[in-house]
Each structure stands twice: as structure tokens, then as C-alpha cells.
Nucleic acid binder design. Structure first.
Lengths: 155, 155
DNA sequence: CCTGAAAAATTATTCGC
DNA sequence: GCGAATAATTTTTCAGG
């Protein structure tokens, strides 16, 4: 499933994670190869799914989306069908930035990004509280973003 | 600080978040304008910092980085200088994908991405346990990624 | 503030070595 | 994998509404 990368691929990946719009020629210069092999390597990484795509990064703060809350959810029904229903429902909520199922008790950890506290309360009331099989929840409001999600470490 | 976007800017942003490499001409076609104003709008959003950049999205799983853990940290010293020292130290750990300071008790929530459990234990021992002023911690291991972080909702 | 088209620049692809 | 030539795409510019 996971593939091994040589040092060159890793450097190409690092560059593209930092700047998705680097031309192949510039990339080639930086890794010390000519364009042909660099283009081929990129294509291969795209086709293998290692590079999933290229996207613009936007500033949530500049959009007024600075209110981050983590919610711990406990379900009343932990059978496979209930989990599936919950997963599908939570994926349909656009304000859910992340959601992981946590080991040890069939809990979920959900990250919500909202405009402000009022917006968060609306999301909680209209979206999260309607999720299937939720038994109880605890909210953790972020006061400060020390490290914001960007990209996984390439090592 | 946060700026208002008209409907066109929002659509441009949505398209670029989905695909950072869309040519201006194609974007113009999709939003129903000519290239000139679309290029100008993109430039303005870049300069205002709303668009922070463009990056390749990679599959952590394909890289073998599928082990996600959330760690709740409590500090023994919550004076401003201690918090600053902690923040700086945590930012220097590459495996830290996210870190938020949580309201109500000066706790931190840290998200770690690792190769496997052994890798996580190494990170915990070598990196997290050396963070300044940490008093205690609890780990929450993710069993399943229901929603992976991608981009904040544009609404 | 937008249109449309021409011009200029950049970038990707191809191919013999 | 190299390097040059070719081909294609893309951005920038500008007169006009």
C-alpha cells in the first residue's frame, strides 16, 4: 500500500507541497536533474495517488473563520450499522474539518470551524445534535492556534 | 481584519481550493467573466493574504503515515513566559500536525501523525516529553479517519 | 469595472543520443 | 537520464464600452 520514495522523489514532493505551481524546469534545477525524469516522476506520483491534487490554501482567519472547537462525542449504539450511519452523517456537515474515531470506548473527536461562538452554537444545535446515536458530548474551545494543520511531515 | 467577499470571489476561491492549477481562462469561463477581472481578483486575494499559497496535497496513508494520535497536555506553569516557551518548542516538532491551546485550564490539544505505534512512542519519548512545563498528558489514538482535514468551509 | 483580442512570455512535450 | 527543438498553454496588455 505505502510506497517507498527515493531521495529525489522526496525532494520533489517537498517542493510541490511548499509550492504547487513550481514549473518542472525549476523543479529540475533544484533537484539537479533534467526536466524529462522530473516530469515522469511527478506523473507517476500523481497516478499512484501519492499526490492527491493541488489546492489553494486559504486563511480561515481572513475569512472570519477563527473559532475552532473540538467536540468529544460518545455514541449510545456502537454496532457497525450505527457507526456507518454516524460516519455518513458527519461527513455531510461542511463545518466539520476533521473527525476521527478514537480507540477505547467508541468515541469520536470532531473538529469544528465556525465564525464565532454564536455560529458554533448554531452548528451544534442544527447539525451536531442531529447526528445519529449521539449519547453525550463535551466541547473544547480553542483559545489559540499554536500549530495549524498544513501538511503531513515528509520526514 | 477579515474581508468581505462577493459571490464571484467566493466561486473563484472554491475552484482554486479544489484545483490550484486551473488556468485563469478556465476560471473565467466557469464564473462567467473574462480573464482580466478574474486575474485581478486572484491577485488581490493573494496580496491580501486570503490566498496563502498553493500546495500539493499528498496522501499520508500512501506515505505510511497513518497513525494519528491526539494528546491532551496539561502544563504545570501557565504564566505567559511558560506558554511562550511551550508554543515555540511545540512548533519545532515536525510530527505535530496541529496544536491548539484550549480554554478552561490552560491545556493543549496536540495532533501527532506517525508511521505506526512504535514511531509514535519514539516521538512521545524524544519530542513531546521534552516539551517545557508539561505536567501530565493523555493520549487518544485514532482508529479511523472519518473526515480528514482538507480546507475550511467557504460557506 | 468589464470585454475581447493581440502580443508576449512561460511551460510542457517530444525525440535522438 | 540529458539537452535541444518543438509544440502547446497561459499570462499580460491594451483599446474600447
Amino acid at each position: 500500500m505505502s510506497q517507498d520514495l527515493d531521495a529525489i522523489d522526496r525532494r520533489i514532493l517537498n517542493e510541490l507541497v511548499a509550492d504547487a505551481r513550481l514549473p518542472v524546469a525549476e523543479l529540475a534545477r533544484r533537484v539537479g536533474l533534467s526536466k524529462t525524469p522530473v516530469a515522469a516522476r511527478i506523473k507517476q506520483m500523481e497516478e499512484s495517488g501519492l499526490i492527491k491534487g493541488y489546492r489553494a490554501m486559504i486563511s480561515p482567519m481572513k475569512l472570519g473563520l477563527s473559532h475552532v472547537t473540538y467536540i468529544e462525542l460518545r455514541l449510545s449504539d456502537t454496532r457497525e450499522s450505527a457507526l456507518k450511519a454516524f460516519n455518513a452523517a458527519v461527513r455531510a456537515i461542511p463545518e466539520v474539518e476533521e473527525c476521527y474515531m478514537i480507540a477505547g470506548g467508541f468515541d469520536y473527536l470532531v473538529k469544528i470551524r465556525a465564525r464565532d461562538m454564536a455560529d458554533y452554537r448554531r452548528i451544534m444545535a442544527e447539525e451536531l445534535s442531529t447526528l445519529p446515536h449521539v449519547h453525550s458530548s463535551s466541547s473544547y474551545v480553542a483559545m489559540e492556534a499554536v500549530v495549524e494543520a498544513s501538511a503531513p511531515p515528509l520526514e
